[in-house]
């Protein structure tokens, strides 16, 4: 039994330490906020907010209050607002402890590709390149294999990079992997997943 989306998010939440300022990407990473429990975590939204609250109740939406995915959100008692240059100043300046984001491909040297598929519609990198270059720890959450069953943990990325050698830890539906010297190190397997399954679905070099 591999992990589902919520279990991956729950596992990723274990990575966050009390007192951290964290940026969560769009998609599964957003779900991580549901699992931080009692930890004192401040969420950053790169459009200019620290202390991001949950979605508003129906009827309380404010067009002046959105997250980086353009969704309506709410503020908390700790919230601070600032402009985009200040926001990316704290990202580039290493003040954000961790970013959790999705990916299309990760290579065994920590290269990350998550913004562009040549020949398909190109939407842009948004803040992803700044985040992976600047934050303390980059944690990727993604399915281990793509829809065709091909490994997304590769020896080398085939898609244009978002960042070079930037990923620290990868949480897939099959387990947890660290980028280390010489390849990826299997840190943890999802319940019921076998080492054989992981080996057969991983193109990247697995080191012990």
């Amino acid at each position: 039994m591999a992990w589902d989306r919520n279990q991956m998010a729950e596992r990723a939440a274990d990575e966050l330490q009390d007192g951290w300022y964290v940026n969560l990407g769009i998609g599964i990473p957003t779900l991580v906020a549901n699992y931080v429990g009692d930890k004192d975590i401040t969420l950053q939204s790169e459009n200019g907010m620290l202390g991001m609250g949950p979605f508003p109740f129906d009827g309380d939406e404010d067009p002046d209050l959105i997250n980086a995915g353009k969704q309506t959100i709410t503020e908390l008692s700790r919230t601070a607002y600032f402009d985009s240059a200040t926001s990316f100043g704290m990202i580039r300046g290493g003040k954000i402890a961790a970013a959790i984001l999705g990916a299309m491909e990760v290579a065994e040297n920590g290269d990350l590709a998550n913004w562009m598929i040549p020949g398909k519609l190109v939407k842009g990198m948004g803040g992803a390149m700044d985040l992976v270059a600047g934050v303390g720890k980059v944690i990727v959450i993604m399915d281990h294999a793509n829809k065709k069953g091909e490994s997304k943990l590769l020896k080398e990325c085939t898609l244009p990079l978002t960042g070079k050698g930037v990923v620290d830890r990868i949480i897939t539906n099959l387990g947890v992997f660290d980028v280390v010297e010489g390849g990826l190190k299997l840190v943890e397997m999802a319940d019921g997943v076998t080492r054989e399954e992981i080996d057969s679905l991983t193109e990247a070099t697995l080191v012990n």
Partner: peptide, 24 residues
Amino acid sequence: PQGTLAERMRAAGCGIPGFYTKTG
């Protein structure tokens, strides 16, 4: 990149024609 775009604007407004960044 979003932060590079914001900083390119801010920098010009501060009279800084160029800056170095690790983004990208």
